[in-house]
């Protein structure tokens, strides 16, 4: 059985820990693989770079932070949506930005959802819980 993994792209270890903790607390038990920037997202998916030896399977869900070094979340999203292989992959942007321009570019590039990271941990947990539930359990997407 293919493990239903979640790919989390997050350069901030604090946010990473909070996100994974929130997911766990909400009962999302899927394994979370963490990458540090947009380039690593691409490498992870394509099994290139430092992920050459990774067992090639697609994650169930990609959680993208926007502001990351090397390549940011929008660049990674653009790559995913342009790739024939990954364009159906559910991608959710997790961001602390409330800039309209970020939201608009995100949706234009075909993101499935954008969730603002609230400061308040309860709200944050709630958001993550909804996300995990929706994209991992509720949402139906094409089987390959």
């Amino acid at each position: 059985m293919i493990p239903k993994k979640i790919l989390l792209a997050e350069d901030n270890p604090d946010d990473e820990l909070l996100t994974t903790r929130a997911l766990k607390k909400c009962g999302v038990l899927n394994e979370v693989d963490v990458v540090r920037n947009g380039q690593e997202v691409i490498d992870y998916l394509e099994c290139t770079g430092k992920y050459t030896d990774r067992t090639p399977y697609e994650p169930q869900l990609v959680l993208l932070d926007l502001k990351m070094p090397v390549k940011d979340g929008l660049e990674a999203l653009e790559y995913i949506r342009k790739s024939d292989k990954f364009k159906t992959l559910p991608v959710v942007i997790l961001t602390s930005s409330r800039e309209e321009s970020d939201l608009i570019s995100g949706y234009k590039l075909g993101v499935n959802s954008i969730v603002c990271k609230p400061i308040n941990f309860e709200e944050f947990s709630e958001a993550v819980r909804h996300l995990g539930m929706y994209w991992l359990l509720i949402n139906e997407y094409p089987t390959r």
Partner: peptide, 13 residues
């Protein structure tokens, strides 16, 4: 708005 929020989120979280 972005960078200052992250540590706050950590503090709060």
């Amino acid at each position: 708005s972005h960078d200052l929020r992250a540590p706050l989120r950590a503090m709060s979280g």
